[in-house]
């Protein structure tokens, strides 16, 4: 079975204002799809629509050929998700949180225990496994979220700005992990502002601007088509309307005045 994600003509409005408009793209198994866009472009809303947390006003999301809302439970069994903000129950320890997630997913106890132990060790959280997460740094919380998303060996992994808060070493590990998961046949989709990372590990990118897709292609093809050497250049041309240099100068002028 091909675990392909198809987003077809998805739109979402809040108070009548379109946040996502007629978004369509495909993320294939074995590939890493980057989902890019400036702040407020509708990335996280699309991600939440894909998880089923939000229902679109129009359009549909299909996974492995089946609309996800036909059997949301089955879809969620195969989905791993890291949200944009590391929102966790901080009165629990990392170990307790992961155990709870494993139990909610009804993973067999023995498998869950082994995986939690190993994931905590590999993410460098073993020492603090029984410490309340209220004392965790942002990066540590992000690692717990990553571990929770991978615990049940999902077929599809959705990562909304997963590098947020991670130190250099952890970010490099995650970069390799994403590539490794795709190489093992999983459908990986992630959004990030780190264009260099996206350029290195993504097979294709979808660029969103003001709720609409402005590019959806292989990175190399985009570079050739637009005659731009970097993804940063492509992104700047498609999704940034401001003169960033001028704005920076004006800010400095304001505080100097």
């Amino acid at each position: 079975m091909s675990y392909t994600l198809q987003v077809s003509d998805v739109s979402k409005r809040y108070s009548g204002i379109p946040v996502v408009s007629h978004v369509s793209f495909t993320a294939c198994a074995g590939q890493v799809t980057g989902y890019l866009g400036p702040n407020g472009s509708g990335k996280s809303t699309t991600m939440k629509i894909i998880t089923g947390l939000i229902k679109p006003d129009t359009g549909e999301v299909r996974f492995a050929g089946e609309p996800i809302h036909n059997n949301l439970r089955s879809f969620r069994e195969r989905l791993g998700y890291v949200p944009e903000e590391p929102q966790l129950y901080t009165h629990l320890s990392g170990n307790e949180y992961l155990t709870m997630v494993a139990q909610l997913r009804s993973l067999p106890t023995k498998i869950a225990r082994t995986r939690i132990q190993e994931l905590l060790r590999l993410f460098g959280l073993e020492q603090d496994r029984d410490v309340s997460m209220s004392g965790y740094s942002k990066g540590m919380r992000q690692k717990v979220l990553l571990a929770a998303a991978l615990l049940h060996n999902p077929a599809m992994i959705l990562l909304d700005e997963p590098f947020s808060g991670l130190d250099v070493g952890s970010a490099l590990t995650l970069r390799n992990l994403i590539a490794e998961l795709a190489a093992r046949g999983k459908t990986v989709m992630f959004s990030s502002h780190e264009l260099e990372t996206v350029e290195r590990i993504c097979t294709r990118v979808v660029i969103l601007h003001r709720g609409q897709i402005v590019a959806d292609d292989d990175i190399r093809r985009l570079q050739t088509l637009m005659a731009l050497p970097t993804l940063e250049g492509i992104f700047a041309q498609l999704a940034i309307e401001q003169d960033t240099v001028a704005i920076a100068r004006q800010i400095a002028d304001v505080i100097d005045a």
């Binding site: 998880t51 947390l53 439970r73 969620r76 069994e77 998700y81 929102q87 966790l88 909610l104 997913r105």
Partner: peptide, 9 residues
């Protein structure tokens, strides 16, 4: 959200 995402029963 974690309870919603793990609602598989």
């Amino acid at each position: 959200w974690i309870f919603q995402m793990t609602q598989v029963h």
